[in-house]
Amino acid sequence: MKSDRSLGNRISIVVPVFNAQDYILDTIRMVQRQTYENFELILVDDASSDRSTEIINAVLGEGDNRIKLIRTTVNKGAASARNAGISAATGRYLAFLDADDVWMEDKLEKELAFLRDKDAAFVFTAYEFGDENAKPTGRVVHVPESLSFREALSRTVIFTTTVMIDMDKLSKDTIYMPLIESEDTATWWSILKRGTVAYGLDEVLAIYRRPHKSLSSNKFAAIRRIWGLYRKIAGLSVISSLFYFMGWAVRATLRRL
């Protein structure tokens, strides 16, 4: 168990919360069970209309001062909620977690050790798809040892819930997410475009919960988003965008088989 409470070793975990009453208590308990204990859990309630805030306040009443709640009065989306959490973060390290995703109990401990071993600014891990109940499906997304900007353009392999950042190496200004669709991918590309290399720990430390949705509408939306990122965030020409899009499409298809 890791219990050092110094700010220099603290991990700030940012969780956007919007109408997550079905998941949020389990998410909080999951973080509390982490083998690495020096964290602050920043829950940003983005104007939920369900019982999310009530559930969080009940947990706050238990006295775990590592848990913090930020409430907004207007729903502005995940990017804005994450940015509020980043602004409030006091630790050296930053991790992201979506309210319906799952971490293994040693996720923070293993990933922090990996980040320090690589002397990295930005790391991410492998993950496994889960069903609507977060039950693992056996479909694992493996990650490369490292990822540069150009390599990232054809493979959206960085899953936000697996990311950890050293804020001594990357300032908050470089981490804030733009208020656009696929804001997380846009952020990773912007960071990598500055010359940072992301390092991948190819061990499943998270489960990506995927409720049943319309696959066709998801695909069309993903195509539109990725094209917009190529043109507006990466600044690529139409020809270059087509080149990287083909690589992205092949990898995205294989990942879902």
Results as ranks from 00 to 15, higher is better:
1 M>K: 10
3 S>I: 11
4 D>E: 10
7 L>F: 10
9 N>Q: 13
10 R>Q: 13
15 V>N: 11
15 V>E: 10
16 P>K: 06
19 N>F: 04
21 Q>K: 14
21 Q>I: 04
21 Q>R: 13
23 Y>K: 05
24 I>G: 02
26 D>P: 11
30 M>V: 15
30 M>Q: 14
33 R>N: 15
34 Q>M: 09
34 Q>H: 08
35 T>P: 00
35 T>Y: 05
36 Y>Q: 05
36 Y>G: 04
37 E>P: 00
37 E>T: 13
38 N>M: 10
40 E>D: 14
43 L>T: 03
45 D>K: 06
46 D>S: 02
47 A>Y: 14
48 S>P: 08
48 S>Y: 07
51 R>H: 15
52 S>H: 03
56 I>F: 03
58 A>M: 09
59 V>N: 02
59 V>Q: 07
64 D>H: 02
65 N>K: 08
66 R>I: 08
68 K>E: 05
68 K>A: 06
71 R>S: 14
72 T>A: 13
73 T>F: 00
73 T>A: 13
75 N>R: 14
77 G>A: 03
78 A>L: 11
79 A>G: 11
80 S>T: 12
82 R>A: 12
83 N>R: 08
86 I>N: 06
89 A>M: 10
89 A>T: 05
94 L>R: 06
96 F>E: 05
97 L>P: 05
97 L>T: 06
100 D>T: 06
100 D>H: 08
100 D>Q: 05
102 V>L: 09
103 W>E: 08
104 M>F: 09
105 E>D: 13
106 D>W: 13
109 E>L: 10
109 E>S: 12
110 K>G: 04
110 K>I: 08
110 K>S: 07
113 A>G: 08
114 F>M: 01
114 F>L: 02
115 L>Y: 06
115 L>G: 03
117 D>N: 13
121 A>W: 01
123 V>F: 02
123 V>Y: 00
125 T>Q: 06
128 E>Q: 10
131 D>T: 06
151 E>W: 01
153 L>V: 10
154 S>L: 04
157 V>C: 11
157 V>M: 05
157 V>E: 04
157 V>S: 06
159 F>P: 08
159 F>L: 11
164 M>E: 02
169 K>T: 14
170 L>Y: 01
171 S>P: 08
172 K>N: 06
172 K>L: 06
173 D>G: 09
175 I>F: 00
177 M>K: 04
178 P>M: 11
178 P>A: 09
182 S>D: 11
182 S>Q: 13
183 E>R: 00
186 A>T: 04
187 T>C: 15
187 T>M: 15
190 S>T: 15
195 G>D: 06
199 Y>K: 07
200 G>L: 04
201 L>N: 10
208 Y>G: 00
210 R>P: 00
210 R>Q: 12
213 K>A: 13
216 S>A: 12
221 A>V: 03
221 A>I: 05
225 R>K: 08
229 L>K: 03
230 Y>E: 09
233 I>W: 02
236 L>W: 12
237 S>Y: 04
238 V>I: 12
242 L>A: 12
242 L>W: 02
244 Y>V: 07
244 Y>C: 08
246 M>I: 14
246 M>V: 15
249 A>V: 11
250 V>K: 02
251 R>T: 11
252 A>C: 14
254 L>W: 11
254 L>E: 07
255 R>G: 00
257 L>M: 14
